[in-house]
Design a binder for these strands. Sequence first.
DNA 1: TTGGTAAGCAAGTAGGTACTTGCATACGCA
DNA 2: TGCGTATGCAAGTACCTACTTGCTTACCAA
Lengths: 207, 207
Amino acid sequence: MVSRERILEAAGRVYAKHGFRGATTRLIAIEAGVNEVTLFRTFGSKGALLEAVLEQHQEHDHARSLPSEPVDPFAELTIFVAASLERVRDMRPLLVQTMSELDERPDAAEFACRGRHDIHDTITAYIRRLQARGLAASDIDVDVAAVMLTALVMSDAMARHFVPDVYPPLDEAAERYVRSFLRVLGAPAPDAAPPARAAFSPTPSSQ
Amino acid sequence: MVSRERILEAAGRVYAKHGFRGATTRLIAIEAGVNEVTLFRTFGSKGALLEAVLEQHQEHDHARSLPSEPVDPFAELTIFVAASLERVRDMRPLLVQTMSELDERPDAAEFACRGRHDIHDTITAYIRRLQARGLAASDIDVDVAAVMLTALVMSDAMARHFVPDVYPPLDEAAERYVRSFLRVLGAPAPDAAPPARAAFSPTPSSQ
DNA sequence: TTGGTAAGCAAGTAGGTACTTGCATACGCA
DNA sequence: TGCGTATGCAAGTACCTACTTGCTTACCAA
């Protein structure tokens, strides 16, 4: 029963590239190196196959977490952002297709939203923990802050592919995003290399 | 020659909803209240029709601008963000479809990127002007800051539709986004109603 | 009145698509 | 040896889709 997995994997690729309508069973079968009939015998229908693809992706996709007892917000957030960027980036084509077909395939909505929700909730809770420990200002708009960082991650992961020139280099992105984000929290990062001149704003320099 | 515009408008709606493959000429014709043959006589082919749709949208879409001599960053940015949110939100379905079909219709890339580029460039230039006038810190990561606000706008405009619960209410969004964003610039907004308790971070309170 | 132009209608062509059926082949297991 | 199961192959069905053709109708302007 090895064909089942080969079909699933091929279907994922083809669907991500061409969308539901464009992902013909013929193409998927060729891509999987399998007879088209096998596809129908295994999954019953094209719709069921693509449902199986999304399900599988949701299972194999374990969300990143942030430490429950924050110590170094800059380091911790940078790791989290870098991991989230990579995770969302891997799912980008699939996500874009799913988003564009939400009207016609509302059952895929959960798949489209889950990643974003995970990131948003993780960040929100983390900011609250930072506040409780005095590592973030108490007067900040927590929800908007979380939306900001989430948007940054999603935007980079989704749009860098076709608007590459507006984003910082891949290897710097997470770090620079977090550095700027920490200003929103009123808890700036340690001194940095990139644009490290004398500061205009007297934000606190430690903790 | 009124049918040309009716077809264009209907094609825009149908395309935004169903994507290129899903936008059948038959459906477009029905939606336009026009005979399918008229569609082919007017535009030649389905591909040409959809090109015309995108062209038309690009023409009717004049970008917002920010004042060349900034005075009140909070007010100016709020207006800009609100306008951009509305503009992008109107184009959302069309943008999503275009994004999902970039591989197969690379000619639509310009359409997909333009709005984002406009916003990004406008913000970048504005931040530089703020810095020149001492209205923003000089040690900030300008590019990342611009990416941040752009991402916030795009994210809200694109994703609020299917993840509504993570975003602030429509009428508060622009204001709250800008308020948090100004912290990144090291130039906080005037006192606000929402979470206005004693500040933890001694950021400067004016100019 | 005449002629051009935009539009509708009915029908057809050629190709693609999901899905089915019937039959042949190969492999593993009792 | 024989049997069940997974798979391949060829062909077919029913439908959809882009696009064409030939003909008719209605309007508008010279």
